[in-house]
């Protein structure tokens, strides 16, 4: 039983990080119908910026909590600037273009960001400092660290805040209107360009937070870390129903749990025929099964195709 609970905890922590990143994909898709493949790289930039800021400040003798907050702030600001710039120069000129064009651009931006980061931070792995004291709690025989608790809590709070923003504020209403029909939203006095920019900025801030969380949890920051993470988060977004905020959260948590339980039990379930090397196969099998029966994802509603 303790092993099962441990796997659930593992899955929840991993899943909340996936969910935070998946939100960035889903927000942009909801409004523009564009899959922003560069989003994973923004997470990576957030992690590396936070790393540089925090280690730099710690070196100057700044206390840890302050350095961590400053790291998050600087990373968020940089990511927001990057998100805004990328939208402005790489996606906006292609807004009327066929769907394939911005998709290819997104992959291009991703390569540029990745290699840019490699030039700035080098090829080496960076060991991320411990942000919170290494405290462990015992839950029915399973271990959970303070950092893991904070990660899940912070992710949940952020997602709740985002939901409030989208569902309760004027900005949120404008975002929803733009997602529904940009042309009509424009006619109703919504500044569509500003809303799109804000969506990118907001998504990038979430990415910065996710980057900090990944790096803090795995004590690692590297220029290549965004690629796989982005792919997984994108999968989570599709699983939940891309374009749907609640879907991204559900999809993220679910993917984390599936991966964790899959790696933990697939060997026992198949009598050792499949091992933990089928962890990803298992996750994608679930994705395919969901898409066969619910093509718009678990929580996604059927939306009319928009040109």
């Amino acid at each position: 039983m303790d092993i099962f609970i441990q796997q659930i905890i593992n899955g929840l922590v991993l899943g909340s990080i996936y969910a935070l990143v998946a939100l960035g994909y889903t927000m942009v898709y909801g409004i523009l119908g564009l899959i922003n493949f560069a989003h994973g790289e923004v997470v990576m930039l957030g992690a590396l910026t936070a790393y540089s800021t925090i280690t730099g400040l710690l070196g100057l003798g700044v206390p840890l909590p302050l350095a961590a907050l400053a790291g998050l702030a600087v990373a968020a600001l940089l990511c927001m600037a990057v998100g805004y710039t990328v939208e402005r120069i790489a996606y906006r000129p292609l807004r009327g273009a066929p769907r394939l064009a911005p998709l290819i651009t997104a992959i291009g931006v991703s390569i540029v960001l990745q290699n840019g980061a490699m030039m700035v931070w080098g090829r080496n792995y960076h060991a991320f400092p411990n942000l919170v004291p290494e405290r462990q709690y015992d839950v029915f025989g399973a271990t959970i660290t303070l950092l893991q608790v904070l990660t899940v809590l912070l992710a949940a709070l952020t997602m709740a805040g985002l939901m409030l923003l989208v569902l309760r504020t004027k900005l949120g209403r404008a975002m929803r209107a733009t997602a529904e029909n940009p042309a009509i939203a424009q006619l109703m006095g919504v500044d569509v360009n500003r809303i799109v920019s804000l969506t990118f900025v907001l998504g990038s801030a979430l990415a910065a937070l996710a980057g900090l969380m990944v790096s803090a949890n795995y004590s690692i920051a590297h220029y290549y870390m965004g690629f796989i993470l982005g792919l997984k988060a994108f999968t989570a977004a599709v699983l939940g129903g891309i374009g749907n905020l609640a879907g991204a959260m559900v999809g993220g948590i679910l993917l984390g749990l599936i991966e964790s339980l899959g790696a933990g039990y697939i060997g026992d379930l198949t009598g050792g025929f499949f091992g933990s090397n089928y962890q990803d196969v298992f996750a994608f099998f679930v994705l395919i099964a969901v898409l066969v029966f619910r093509p718009s994802g678990l929580v996604g509603e059927k939306v009319a195709e928009r040109a």
């Binding site: 092993i3 795995y218 796989i228 991966e259 790696a263 962890q279």
Partner: peptide, 18 residues
């Protein structure tokens, strides 16, 4: 147990090993 050369999370397999 198995992982891959791009992974960062090993908690699931480590829990099983535990």
């Amino acid at each position: 147990e198995f992982t891959n050369d791009k992974a960062t999370d090993f908690k699931a397999i480590l829990t099983k090993i535990k």
